[in-house]
Design a protein around this nucleic acid. Structure first.
Lengths: 202, 202, 202, 202
DNA sequence: AATGAATGAGCCTTCATTCAT
DNA sequence: CATGAATGAAGGCTCATTCAT
């Protein structure tokens, strides 16, 4: 990519980033169309190629940007929430909400990134998926998980939480008006229920 | 659609249905390509349009077919498994496996149908999504759910199970060799864990 | 390429071949536009890609075709004109004229092929340039060149004749009405002059 | 064009002239790209248009410049070499070499100009091609051509020499390291041969 | 009924040209 | 004067759809 992109006015950078991110997040790599981004960001078709060379270059940039931004926030958060498994999980979700303040489509993009099937897209996606995974794992580093009932498989539990929360997130994006309040309550009540089920009562 | 389709040899009908279903299930409506179906079913391009008019007509037909077939099997199953919530859930998953015997991509197609975002596709999908939902609900009609711990919200529990099992299913389809054995064990151990957590111990 | 091309009506094949050849011959690989070929051959844009995959595939096919056709005619000719250097050279030029009966742009295409600079085009052109060169050399196999004056360098003479005749040819193509009569006379009088200069008078 | 161009530092003028000339000479009018000139001359894209309005304006200017510069040198030369046809021809070629000292691509540009086929380019090229032709003719004004053998047609001879020498020139430019020494020797031995053939031996 | 040749709208990408700074 | 960000028309290519055979 052309580094001059970062010399654009921040507002325009963000308009382009958000536009591309939205279109990629909703349609996946292949179906995402330049024309949609043009409409979304109010920026001519040629300009995308001026800065990012081609569609894959743009996708690469957006994935990098989304992961870096999200991971930064995760890092900041994980210093504050070290102990409890469900607290941490909640904190991760709240981090997604906080990230939306600047880049409303980062959470959906990250979710769609995990499902991306297009071969061309996958050639650049590997490292970003890894980086994002690692950052999430890191948030659980100091978490205690010894107060879970015996029947609980940590692996399966993590998978269930992941899939369920991702489902909640996608549904919230479905209608064009994402309600942070809604999402937060849905997530909280779900996690409260799960912790009650999973943790040993004293 | 052209009803003459049903006068074709059953074997050819099924080759076409399976071909289209596979391509739709894997790529979604928009990215599903006629050429892929041609290769998959060994049937000329023109024939699809002869019988189904256009891509949407074909999608409509396939969705209808998949839902009808799945619902039939669900119906049959639900007469045999009336009582327990988790047993029923397991039975639903096993029904997916049984359906795969004739139409290996019905389960994946049904899953992809729920996620379909393409506007054109959605114009025909509403009724099928409803019908499929109702059939699943029906399987739970006579199920007793009074032995669950107080903290459990049935709605949320159902959602979690749904999303998680769907995740398992999609992952199993990922590599091209779906292992029924694998899937069955994964599902069983997951459901066993969840029932242990959720049900009141006597 | 798609071999089905040869199952088209010969007339349509030739319309496409001639159209593509004309546009390539006049503009070179890069500047040759699909749209021009569409107009020239009265055949839709998609069809070229249906048969030849992409522009390079089409260029490859046309080069192959032009060289094969020309070489065939050269072969036939070279059996009839074995002895004299200038007679043979004339015969080669007359072969170009004869080739024009079926494919009016083969001679110009072959000339443009030698000058092609585009890197992509050159990746496929090597073998065709070789084959064409060899066929021309073969025509001179049995030619006697011992009656030339001492000052004559065969290499330089060949080069001069080649460049000059190619110049004549290109000029004749310049205006859109190639006159075979004109070309023939121009070539003959040139070769007569050169032989008079070069050959030892008895 | 904007006459202010000539108020630029001579060094910058020449950088721009040489850059444009090189790109035009190598690629022809249509394929010559602004970006290549930018790289070649180290001068921003906008500046070209500031001074020359558009691509055609620039081409016009370059053609004018190349022809004027070459003709000047031809004029100077023709005063010194009045008599012999082949001497004069050699002198013309040596003039091309001398011109290369300041503008390495003038000879190639002049050659490419003669072959230019692009309609837009041709609208401005007529007068320059004429002027260049006239200047070359003028160099032959006082040349004696009465010692040629009867079979020689002056017109055809001139054409042959022209095309052959042009071929030599283009080939020398082919590889990126034009060797003046090489070119000179090739030309000299060719002309020596031709004069031996063409001139009446005493 | 069945085929696949044929079409053209739409997508990604390039490039001459404009214009705000 | 000088820059290069910005634009949009045009080119190569894909793909759902039509239609002659």
């Amino acid at each position: 990519m052309n580094e001059k992109f970062f010399e654009l006015k921040k507002e325009k950078q963000d308009r382009m980033i958000n536009g591309a991110m939205k279109v990629f997040a909703r349609n996946g790599y292949k179906r995402a169309s330049t024309d949609d981004m043009v409409k979304e960001a109010g920026v001519s078709k040629g300009l995308w190629f001026h800065y990012f060379g081609n569609k894959l270059g743009l996708y690469d940039f957006i994935a990098d940007y989304a992961v870096k931004y999200m991971n930064m926030e995760l890092m900041a958060m994980s210093n504050r929430h070290p102990e409890d498994y469900f607290e941490t999980t909640l904190a991760v979700e709240l981090t997604k909400l906080s990230v939306r303040k600047s880049y409303p489509y980062i959470p959906l993009f990250l979710s769609s990134m995990e499902r991306e099937k297009d071969e061309e897209a996958l050639t650049v996606l590997g490292e970003y998926k890894d980086a994002y995974r690692k950052a999430r794992l890191k948030a659980y580093e100091k978490v205690q998980m010894d107060n879970f009932r015996d029947v609980v498989s940590m692996e399966v539990l993590a998978r269930t939480l992941g899939l369920t929360l991702d489902g909640f997130l996608r549904e919230e994006y479905e209608e064009d008006n994402f309600s942070e309040e809604n999402y937060k309550q849905e997530v909280e009540s779900y996690l409260r229920m799960m912790s009650a089920l999973v943790e040993i009562e004293e």
